[in-house]
């Protein structure tokens, strides 16, 4: 069976060998082609005038707005404010989430206290808490950071808890027999053992924070931020500015995906040889 598998996978390989550059060009073309198709369709609809130009601007209008807003610093300012909120909220979620999760995994009492509360709060879509947070903590940046932290803490808590529970009893026993005390048991056995899960939780938490933040910015009336930019642009029918904002949101999302999520996944799966939750 194994022989067969290598044959099959190996058979696809020679396709790449004749001329590295040519095959790379081809793969770039293959990735770009769908976007060209969609772009052309967009242009056709935009130019045909089925929709008013204000509502459905051409790609070149959007591009022009994008560069203008980038050059005068407005777009970067929005993006930086959003990123700061994302990171602050996520930092809150990381610190509290990992702590609570590990406590729940290690102590019966903590598990009994937190599990019911977490299980009740978690199934409610994060955004539904927004009005409550806005009422309690006021409009603005503080509330949105708090909310993002609150919402993205749940995956971190659940996964850290699962991770600590998944630490194999044999590891604990063998560390005990080798004379590890409680502190070293924690730092050298429990923490590394649970790490793949914790990292997965952080990855999910960051993704969650990102999804919620954009919406929260629309609702919390923050002075700057990409969510606010696209929401505000609606009032003045600035569809081009809105689309430029969405492009930045997509780019940030893509960067998070490529630079953070995939790195973490590779790290845990490949280096540890264990697939986390």
């Amino acid at each position: 069976m194994q022989d067969a598998a290598t044959t099959i996978s190996a058979r696809e390989a020679p396709g790449h060998s004749p001329g590295r550059a040519a095959s790379r060009l081809r793969s770039i073309w293959r990735n770009v082609f769908p976007f060209i198709v969609v772009g052309v369709l967009w242009e056709i609809v935009a130019i045909s005038g089925i929709f008013p130009a204000r509502l459905f601007p051409t790609i070149e209008t959007v591009a022009r707005t994008f560069f203008a807003l980038t050059a005068n610093g407005i777009l970067p300012h929005h993006a930086i404010e959003t990123l700061i909120r994302l990171l602050s909220g996520f930092a809150l979620a990381g610190v509290f989430g990992v702590t609570i999760g590990i406590l729940m995994g290690r102590s019966r009492l903590a598990e009994d206290i937190f599990l019911p509360l977490v299980s009740i709060c978690a199934p409610i879509p994060g955004l539904a808490y927004t009005p409550l947070f806005l009422l309690w903590f006021g409009l603005g940046s503080f509330s949105s950071i708090l909310l993002v932290g609150f919402v993205s803490a749940f995956p971190v808590i659940f996964n850290s808890w699962t991770g600590v529970k998944a630490v194999k009893e044999i590891w604990v026993r063998s560390a005990h027999s080798m004379g590890a005390d409680d502190r070293r048991m924690f730092t050298h056995v429990i923490l590394p053992g649970a790490l793949p899960y914790i990292l997965t939780g952080l990855r999910l938490g960051l993704a969650q924070a990102w999804r919620v933040l954009v919406a929260v910015e629309m609702l919390a009336a923050v002075p700057w931020g990409l969510g606010w930019l696209i929401f505000g642009a609606r009032k003045f029918l600035n569809t081009d500015a809105m689309l430029a904002g969405i492009v930045v949101i997509a780019l940030i999302g893509l960067l998070l995906e490529k630079l953070v999520f995939q790195k973490i996944e590779n790290y845990t799966v490949v280096r540890w040889g264990m697939v986390a939750a």
Binding site: D3, T6, T7, A10, R11, A13, P14
Partner: peptide, 12 residues
Amino acid sequence: EYDTPAGKVTGV
């Protein structure tokens, strides 16, 4: 024969 990155290898 198997196709491997190093070329064809006769298996059987």
